[in-house]
Amino acid sequence: MYNFDYQKPGALADAVKALGADDAKALAGGMTLIPVLKQRLNHPSVVVDLAKLGLSGITVTGDSVTIGAMTTHATVAASADVKRAIPALAALAGGIGDNQVRSRGTIGGSLANNDPAACYPSAALALGATITTNKRAIKADDYFTGMFTTALAADEVIISVSFPIPAKAAYVKFKQPASRYAMVGVFVAKGPAGVRVAVTGSGQGGVFRFTAAEAALASNWSAAALNGLSVSADNMMSDIHGSAVYRAHLVGVIAKRAVTAAG
């Protein structure tokens, strides 16, 4: 790891100011940033730890679940409120990484990093979440701009993420065997924004919507409605764990399993 300055501000304004420096990096749970720093793939001038900004917490209303950016996966997974309102979201959080990753990793960190193999982006996109930052509210549809890239500006900090409560939803993940990240993760939801199917782990551009499946499910919410449906292999990732064709096939299989799980 290269050395850097470390700041742990107690006020959002101070954090935003610190992040205005060249090559500043925000640190949430650190589950992706610290491994990247350890490999010397990034050389920040200053690391701004967001832990003291009071950004964690969960609020559930009649039609939405709002999760503070620094809320850990373990907290979301264990939340009785989330389990009641959007059980699929609690289950997704409870399946990210391992127990130790869930102790530290946060929803804000996951969405800000937008790793193409992360789980949360699929929930945000499928549920039509709104990402609230220190500057604005961003619709999930406008938020994910490609692998490891988002609509966030350098000095923009996620404050919270708000998920509309769906009628039905489920997330099923097929793990890359070694890293255990999502190789194909599919989040299906039937909610206020209609039927949405978001796929993570497999696309070259990061999370994406499986629109053919959405159309099929909109008229017939059943796994059988997805028979024969798959995505094109053209935009799928390919590596030693599976070809693009295999991943494209898995998207269809996992989507069906997610629909079955959603009931």
Binding site: M31, K38, D49, A74, D98, N99, Q100, V101, S103, R104
Partner: peptide, 24 residues
């Protein structure tokens, strides 16, 4: 951050101490 040989408890939760800055 895969092997878990470095797991300790912080405020009662297990974490990987290789994936956390001392300052955190």
């Amino acid at each position: 951050s895969q092997c878990g040989a470095c797991v300790v408890h912080i405020d009662g939760n297990s974490v990987k101490s290789c994936t956390m800055l001392a300052l955190q």
